[in-house]
Amino acid sequence: MDLTPDTIVLWEYGGFRLNATIVNTWIVMAVLTLASWLVTRRLRPDVPPGRWRTLAETIVLMIEEQIRSITPHAVHQILYLAGSLFLFIATAGLLGVVPGFRSPTGSLSTTLALTLVVLFAVPAFSISHGGFRVYLRNFIQPSILLLPLNLLGEASKVISLSIRLYGNVMSSAVIVAILLSIAPFFFPVIMDLFGLLIGMIQAYIFAVLATVYISAAMSQPRANPPPEDSL
């Protein structure tokens, strides 16, 4: 039994192996992009929104509201990142119920990539918000003696985020696989439902944690605070 879709190689050329993780990620990306394009291709301000547009607006506004409840800074920029994280992880989890589809979030490579994105985004937002010196000063707060611990904390974010998501998705897939061999008619369905629930929860947690990390990085006072209405 393959624990990760990384081991499923679909095409290989030279040293590059096109595995199921990448292909399934493309599928998720295609589904999200196609659905977004279909919903937003004919937006007119003078026409009332249809049901799909209303659904898309509701999802986007819910994400935006969640971000706004955490931080008032750079809401739209955080929305692009955290919203994409949430939609990608949630869609990957939903597609996990399709027979033969292995969720790309069940790959440690995927979760590590997502975590690295967050890891790079946190200093990027912090520097863009408060400046480079303010960002560096965070590592010596409250004392320069805590610099190693602060660096360790940053690294632990990467580990906790990536392992949490990977472990939950992978374990769900493993449990379903085990139950399929024991009781193939009833329990896998229940576990798939649990897997869906867990996938949605993990998507929410991953996005919220990313927002919290970015928000915490931007909570330091600015070196040259802009006018309040520039937010």
Binding site: T4, D6, I22, T25, M29, S84, A113
Partner: peptide, 18 residues
């Protein structure tokens, strides 16, 4: 539990593209 760094880079690019 292994990490395929090529896949990690590909997923990084994929996610940024997404």
């Amino acid at each position: 539990m292994s990490i395929d760094w090529i896949t990690v880079l590909a997923q990084l690019a994929n996610f940024l593209l997404l």
